[in-house]
Amino acid sequence: MDAPVQNPAGPVPTGYFRWEPEEDDVLICRAVREETHDVKTFVFAPRHKRQFEFVSGQFLTFEFDIDGETIHRCYTISSPPTRPDTVSITVKRVPGGPVSNWLHDQFQPGMMLKATVPMGVFSWAGMQATKYLFISGGSGITPMMSMTRASFDLALISDIAFVHAARSPADIVFHDELDYMSRRNRSIRPTFIVEDDAPRESWGGYRGRFDGAKLAMICPDFRERVVFVCGPAPFMKAVKTTLEAAGFDMGRYHQESFNFDDFTEEAQEQISEATEEIDSGVKVFQLEFTKTGRTIECPEGLTVLEAARRAGMRLPSSCSKGLCGTCKSRLTSGSVDMKHGGGIRQREIDAGMALLCCSRPKTDLVIER
């Protein structure tokens, strides 16, 4: 049977070139589409004739200049790699969120943003399975939508049970499109779970929160499938607990692992430990930043980014976990111990690049920042 491959979109057609942000990192907005009352999709294309190359599930890191402040945010690509001329992100308005509100209220077609190369490893690319279960909550639907759209475009022989949880019928993102794809391709079967009715729309389907009883009714053969889960952290925890309790083989379980809002407890503990060691004779390295002219101290065990923050420097960063690539910088001198999460490629490491958020100095450093 056919199965997803590493690059579902296939090779870039003759006469086209791949978009390379190292050459031109500016994308122009081609369209803004309203998905629900508080969710919009933003469609981007390169300024010059280029095509995107990525796999479903990856994300882009954007740079926003809002009220004189530079902010970096990561958004999962919701469009499929089978449509390489454009790339889309789907953004939910967050109360008080500076970026999401600016995008919803101010950003229009024709405006431009800087972005990095697509990154991330949450994807079905390269898998040989033919039965999948996608479980998403809220805006966690975006990577699942990219995979499903690719499967639909290529008519893959892949049985996809797609379960999406939302607050109300009015909050179901891509409702109409998923219904359309299921009518045209019977191997795509979306099911929606909502907590409450919408003000002017009652709901006759599954209600309440995701649980084992609903899962057994919606997808009785879930134990035979490869599972992908994405959504708010409490939602993903509940899904994982449900599957473990049902005896699911967790070797076939895949969960979006990053949260760009906060450090993990483990990272915070490492920072606290490094702070305690500063006064106990730990080795201290000198970090020279060539563009800002600053030289700071970094105790052994502390990341370059955290040392810079403590010294009052504002370096570009987003995930702080080696995933997004926002803090990527060139080391002109010295070496680091870098444990990244996929936000940098080997050829970039070979060229002297490093992610400052997950790099701990082994020597004094000279950094192009």
Rank of each mutant, 00 (worst) to 15 (best):
Q255Y: 05
E195D: 15
F44L: 07
V366H: 03
G137T: 01
Q128D: 15
S168C: 08
E256V: 03
P95T: 08
G120R: 00
T130S: 14
T76Y: 05
I135M: 03
D197W: 03
A307R: 02
R345A: 07
I89P: 00
D171L: 04
T90L: 05
C358W: 01
L315F: 13
G205R: 12
T90D: 06
S139P: 02
T264I: 08
C357I: 09
C219Q: 02
S136F: 01
E177T: 11
M127A: 08
P232I: 00
S158H: 06
A216S: 15
P169Q: 12
Q286V: 09
I278Y: 03
I160E: 01
V227M: 06
E288G: 06
M353P: 02
G120S: 08
V284S: 01
F192A: 04
E297H: 12
M236W: 00
P13Y: 12
T36L: 05
M217P: 00
L156A: 03
P84A: 15
T363F: 09
K321I: 11
G293E: 10
S333D: 14
G126E: 07
G342H: 07
D364S: 08
G212F: 10
S202N: 13
S139E: 04
I218L: 11
G231V: 00
R294M: 12
I188H: 01
G204Q: 13
R209A: 04
Y132D: 01
T148Q: 02
P118S: 06
P80I: 05
G15W: 11
R310Y: 09
G140C: 06
S146N: 08
E297S: 13
S100G: 07
A354I: 03
V282N: 13
Y253C: 11
E288W: 04
W203L: 11
P220I: 09
R369Y: 11
G10Y: 11
P143W: 03
I71P: 02
P199Q: 07
M250W: 05
Q58M: 07
Q270N: 14
A45N: 03
P46H: 10
F192C: 05
R73H: 10
M353V: 05
R167H: 12
D65S: 12
H254C: 05
S182W: 05
R18D: 07
T363I: 10
G251W: 08
D38P: 03
F174D: 01
H48V: 13
E273Q: 15
A354R: 05
S158T: 13
F59W: 11
D159C: 09
L243T: 01
A170E: 14
M250Q: 12
C319G: 04
R310Q: 15
E35R: 04
D153K: 07
A170N: 14
D25W: 08
L323P: 00
F260A: 15
P232H: 00
G138C: 10
Q268P: 00
L305C: 03
G205H: 11
I278W: 05
A308S: 13
S139A: 15
F54R: 01
G120I: 04
I66C: 07
M145Y: 08
T290R: 13
V12C: 14
I157C: 12
S317H: 15
W102R: 05
F248Q: 03
C219G: 02
E276R: 15
